[in-house]
Amino acid sequence: MTFHAIGLMSGTSLDGLDICFARFGKEGASWNFEIIKAETLPYPAEWEKKLRGSIHLSAEQLLELHSEYGFYLGQAVNTFIKKYRIRHIDLIASHGHTVFHQPKRKFTLQIGDGRAVKLETGLPVIYDFRSQDVLMGGNGAPLVPIGDQLLFSRYDACLNLGGFSNISLNINDQRIAFDIAPVNIVLNLLAKALGKSFDENGDLARSGNIDKKLLTQLNALPFYRQPHPKSLGIEWCNEHIFPLLENIEIPDALATFTEHAAVQIADVFNRYRLKDVLFTGGGTYNRYLIEKIRSRTATEIIIPGTQIIEYKEALIFALMGVLKLNSEINVLSSATGSLHDHSSGVTA
């Protein structure tokens, strides 16, 4: 069986919209893939502002943005299809953009109405992959472990360095996954205070000094001692992280928070005695962060080619759409903590 799908991913760090067109093949129980075309569309300033401020909107304004962003996604896909002259597409799988994520209160919201995407493109669309899991008592995250298991099982673990760092690994023949710590959601915001969109190569952090008192406070946050499964959201950062960073010079805050992220990530590697870990996500380009992680662990850090670094999440959401299309399991309860494995997503 062969399927062609487009995966759409908008990360919490608002780097842009990732679009990945891939071929998936299934032989028996084994899946393989090929990324055919992929690109990131940086958000225009207007859209970045809208998405960043979405958490503060009224219910009516948020519903309006939900529809508007859905049409925006559809238009972006149409442009992508035309640019690369893509002819055969079985489906579009859209993650949407996360506004709220509070699984303990039984809700999560990713805006970008899939019905609007379908109206714009005329193609089948599968969206809203997280809500069902949250209603089933899960964290609604991480979802990518199903792709790690089916496409990248040759590595001991897979780590994504995006807005948050999250890991998935096999323990006793069961795939577990959890968020480790915030990364770009914090580093990018600090860099913006210095007029930069992000801390390129970690150079700003490298120029700062580590504040040992702040580092101790960050490492002492209760989340890091909680058992998995567990996940993080912007609300947690607003409550627990940003208040600690208010009265410190930006380069020092960057240096300290980078050290903090490295400490938490390396601790997980060491705890599970991981031989090798596949790194993906924008944070993989942060050389200073990678150096800091390497200095704290003997685990081999595998850095793949650009396509996998940048589009692995969009690729896996495309796979999740294909799995949903075939009524196959695409969410692992061992990763999210929900009642049982299930096939999630709403079909438009």
Rank of each mutant, 00 (worst) to 15 (best):
V99R: 00
E60I: 07
K312F: 01
I35Y: 11
K212C: 02
K324H: 04
Y69K: 13
H88D: 09
R175Q: 12
A298F: 11
D128A: 07
D113M: 09
D252S: 09
K324T: 02
P142L: 12
R273N: 15
E39Y: 11
L62C: 13
L143W: 09
S131P: 01
K104C: 00
I126L: 08
E200D: 14
Y43K: 04
L62G: 02
V277R: 07
G281P: 12
T256W: 01
G321S: 13
I180P: 09
I301V: 13
F21A: 08
I301G: 05
I210L: 10
S10M: 08
E239I: 00
L274Q: 13
D15V: 01
G345M: 09
H97P: 09
L143N: 03
T336F: 13
E328F: 09
A262T: 10
N139V: 04
L151M: 06
S94V: 03
I6D: 05
I171M: 08
D179H: 13
L319H: 07
R296F: 04
K82R: 05
K196M: 07
A253P: 06
Y285S: 12
S207N: 07
V77R: 02
D341Y: 10
G53M: 01
N247L: 13
F223W: 10
C158V: 15
D203E: 03
L278R: 14
N32D: 12
L339M: 09
N188V: 06
C20T: 05
L187Q: 05
G345T: 03
D276C: 14
A93R: 01
V277L: 11
N160A: 08
L143E: 02
I234E: 01
Q75S: 08
K104M: 01
I302H: 04
T40H: 13
L8M: 07
A193K: 11
L14A: 02
G305R: 07
T258C: 12
L274M: 14
Y285K: 10
H97I: 10
N78T: 11
C20I: 09
V144K: 00
F257K: 00
P42E: 10
K106Q: 10
L17K: 06
Q61Y: 06
N286C: 14
I180N: 04
T12P: 03
Q102K: 04
A255H: 01
F269C: 12
G281T: 15
R287Q: 13
S67W: 04
I248M: 08
Y127E: 01
K106E: 00
L119V: 02
Q110H: 12
K106N: 05
T121R: 02
I309C: 11
G137H: 13
N160G: 10
D15P: 03
P222V: 03
S58E: 13
G281H: 11
Y69T: 01
T336R: 12
N286P: 06
G137W: 13
R105H: 09
I303R: 12
G163Q: 01
